[in-house]
Design a protein around this nucleic acid. Structure first.
Lengths: 236, 236
DNA sequence: GGGGCGCAATGATATGCGTCAAGGGAGGAT
DNA sequence: ATCCTCCCTTGACGCATATCATTGCGCCCC
């Protein structure tokens, strides 16, 4: 289980990430700082489960999380990658429904929990926080709709290239400037792309053969970025 | 072009549809009523275009609209069906970007336009309107994510059955209790499902042969609803 | 060190579905 | 009425991709 403790280093609005709460008024920030509970989740641990009732929102202080649906046949579809400074679990809270996705830590992560009532209360009072929330939702919706179009219209090869770029955008690269700074299993990559694991593996091998990437276990090095972009065939 | 005129019958909060603006405070409603401009768009007319800058939100008073992306190869992907009481164009406005979709009238429609500044201003002041807006965004996001999972994991046959049910949920049936009350081309149905037009046609024929539906030009009658639900294979 | 386990990789095979091509039917314009 | 133009429909074909099966590799645990 997650060890639950008040973490003195868990402040919002650190310089290194742009949490939504930076937009909140100071008095509200203070309330949040008072009420929040920070926990550490180990790699592989579930933060919340699809189907459960939400009791608050989670704010990722540090770490990497995947949000995934379980499809009808049990296959996982990863719908979002969450990074430090992002919040999660707000969708279920706002629409007053159960979670539609499961949040799982991709590596050890430090996460704050903010109780439902407080969050909703402050949202009522704090217009700029509300506005930021709407901005986030709109942006997520835009991304989701783009993904729908790509899933419906693009071949797996292009979507895989796009996914590699997406992972890079989200979590960045290691110091060498090439290696993706998150370790995902082949299956997770496939579930992000929306294809079978074997297909993802095969195409990764092709990419490697073509000199676009380098593979070493779960490490993926993006060697020829322009070529990956070309393969992704992005126009929009 | 759309004839632009102040339509005295265009009030918010008519009993017959639950516009978001029902949540707004009265004084704000009055301001909106003052500033809004109602227009009639003929079937096939474009209300706004992908790539254009938004100058306000649209509130559908009456009629049916499709929102669609144009994919990289020009193929259309329908991402939302809009009905009376719904608003559209808010996503681009809130995230301060250009429209990512084109809105086209599926039949003659009466639509109100609310200027950007006014809408954003009132959103700042009116917490319950903001909250309703977040609720709508969350709900759309939930639907979009579900669609992503289904596109990635379900065969076309299931998705088509699902789409028929979705059209029924959105626009309802005619008096006979069977006929979908919107006329879509086969291509539009395919673009909603995310498949080729010919595939959609073939599967519709199969559904007909199996006695699930009846086809008469663009009229689609849902005969065996339970069987359609079964074919859609919905678990969530 | 050896056995077992999970994950990666590769091959073989099947098939769902997209694409191309041609025919047919309904409605509109002249 | 007759053409014309969409759109719908059906058929044939091939490819991309899922599925099944096997092998190999690294890792942990005893």
């Amino acid at each position: 289980m997650a060890t639950s403790f008040h973490n003195p280093s868990c402040h919002h609005c650190k310089d290194r990430f742009s949490s939504i709460f930076c937009k909140a008024e100071q008095c509200n920030l203070d309330q949040i700082a008072e009420a929040k509970v920070c926990s550490v989740y180990r790699k592989g641990q579930v933060i919340f489960h699809e189907g459960a009732y939400p009791f608050g929102v989670y704010c990722v202080n540090d770490g990497k999380i995947k949000l995934s649906h379980s499809g009808d046949d049990g296959r996982e579809q990863i719908i979002r990658l969450v990074k430090a400074g992002d919040i999660m679990g707000y969708k279920a809270l706002l629409s007053n429904e159960r979670y539609t996705a499961t949040a799982t830590a991709l590596e050890d992560s430090s996460i704050c929990f903010i109780p439902k009532d407080l969050f909703l209360n402050i949202l009522q009072k704090d217009a700029s926080l509300s506005f930021e929330m709407m901005r986030i939702l709109s942006s997520e919706l835009r991304k989701a709709e783009l993904k729908i179009t790509h899933l419906a219209q693009k071949p797996v090869r292009e979507r895989l290239a796009e996914t590699l770029l997406f992972i890079k955008e989200t979590y960045g690269l290691e110091e060498d400037g090439h290696t993706l700074s998150v370790r995902l299993s082949r299956e997770e990559i496939a579930n992000l792309v929306g294809t079978a694991t074997e297909s993802a593996i095969r195409l990764l091998s092709e990419f490697k053969k073509d000199g676009m990437i380098e593979l070493e276990g779960k490490k993926i090095r993006l060697l020829d970025l322009p070529e990956i972009v070309r393969t992704a065939n992005l126009q929009e």
